[in-house]
């Protein structure tokens, strides 16, 4: 959703904006076209259309390896601190990649996704990854 990328925004504003989303739908658009708020996700193109949900989905989570400096994580941790959140330890930022696979066997899907992780999705010099099948 919107909040997924708005890492530097202040929280109060994000809350307001979500209320506002509905307001906008009612005032400036025809009702017939109201979609769920999920539609505005920046990652919407990766979401599975309902008619294809029979396929297996692999979720590949890519993180910087332990020991590799994560300046984004540091900056987020700092920003959270200035917003008054206390007790925050290390913050790490990673990527979540959702793959829709034409495969019904979960183990085969996992093997395929792991190969994709090794060959492209993660750079094993600096990153590690894990695969989850749903």
């Amino acid at each position: 959703m919107l909040t997924g990328r708005r890492l530097t925004g202040d929280h109060a504003k994000i809350g307001q904006s979500q209320q506002g989303v509905d307001a906008a739908v009612h005032t400036s658009r025809p009702r017939a076209r109201i979609d769920s708020p999920a539609r505005i996700s920046p990652f919407r193109s990766l979401e599975i259309p309902a008619e294809r949900a029979a396929h297996v989905k692999a979720i590949v989570t890519v993180m910087l390896k332990e020991g590799v400096l994560d300046p984004q994580g540091k900056a987020i941790g700092h920003a959270l601190g200035t917003l008054g959140f206390s007790g925050i330890g290390e913050v790490r930022v990673g990527k979540r990649i959702e793959l829709e696979l034409a495969e019904t066997n979960p183990e085969a899907a996992r093997a395929a996704a792991e190969e994709m992780g090794r060959k492209l999705l993660a750079n094993l010099v600096i990153e590690s990854f894990k695969v989850e099948i749903v």
């Binding site: 506002g20 989303v21 906008a24 400036s28 658009r29 979609d35 539609r39 505005i40």
Partner: peptide, 23 residues
């Protein structure tokens, strides 16, 4: 579906709930 009615948005004042125009 992005930006539908952007041209008309650019033609009206902001009000307090402009944040609602995010979609």
């Amino acid at each position: 579906r992005d930006g539908i009615h952007g041209a008309t948005m650019a033609s009206t004042e902001f009000d307090a709930d402009s944040e609602s125009k995010r979609p």
